[in-house]
Design a protein around this nucleic acid. Structure first.
Lengths: 121, 121
DNA sequence: TTTCTTGCAAAAGTTTTGCATCTAA
DNA sequence: TTAGATGCAAAACTTTTGCAAGAAA
């Protein structure tokens, strides 16, 4: 059975308010503004559970720790600024991925990460 | 100054012979066939150095450990078979990535990972 | 109440570092 | 010779787990 707790609700609030994928550490720090005493094990446990439940999606950006974002966002990709290291969402998508698929292979889904400089840097 | 050692040479031989990206652990096991006494710290140190020197490239496939492959390969991406979990190289590349870049941002490089079913599965 | 969840601390897993010894040049 | 590299063990991190106490329902 799934029980609603202040801790999980706080984590969900943090991720609903985030406009970019957050690391476990960022989630923990921000959640402590709401529930000051939350422990790191609880953060890990709830994030894992939210991923299992399909509420969160893990975003792995090469060269950095795993980040998490809500799973209900529209399909998108990520742009990593090489100067400030921030991760931005990119709403569009390559249109010609099928031509990349080798003969006999079938494509299910894909991930694209762009690297460069953001408009602030 | 850079000194040539049996250990680093062995690691390089292993990666020259590999036809797919290898994890640290795979590198260590295979290298021990050549230099049986190599320690894990030496494997980590040399892999890091080879990456810094631009001889190796790190390949991060979401959901798995970091893998390494020679950096001098032609530009390519990776296809992960969701059934057998093998990682294949894909020689082609999306052609319309520029249209994904937000206004004011500039693109340096990119990574694409395709997921699906390989021809064997 | 009951039983799921939390917070702490210990454990487990991974990567890095300190240091005496070894070795390539 | 001598400075860089190695191998071991300890340290530093990151993530998971055990368990007594706390809190949803």
């Amino acid at each position: 059975m799934r029980r609603q707790t202040r801790q999980r609700a706080a984590i969900q609030r943090v991720l609903l308010a985030a406009n970019r994928p957050l690391t476990i550490d960022e989630i923990l720090v921000k959640t402590r503004d709401i529930v000051a005493t939350i422990g790191i094990a609880t953060a890990y446990r709830n994030v894992r559970r939210l991923v299992d439940d399909g509420w969160l999606a893990a975003v792995e950006i090469p060269g950095g720790p795993v980040r998490y974002e809500r799973a209900d966002k529209d399909h998108h990709h990520h742009f990593v600024c090489l100067t400030c290291n921030r991760v931005f969402e990119v709403p569009s998508c390559p249109t010609d991925l099928e031509q990349m698929v080798p003969d006999g292979f079938s494509l299910d889904h894909h991930e694209v990460v762009l690297y460069g400089k953001c408009s602030d840097c």
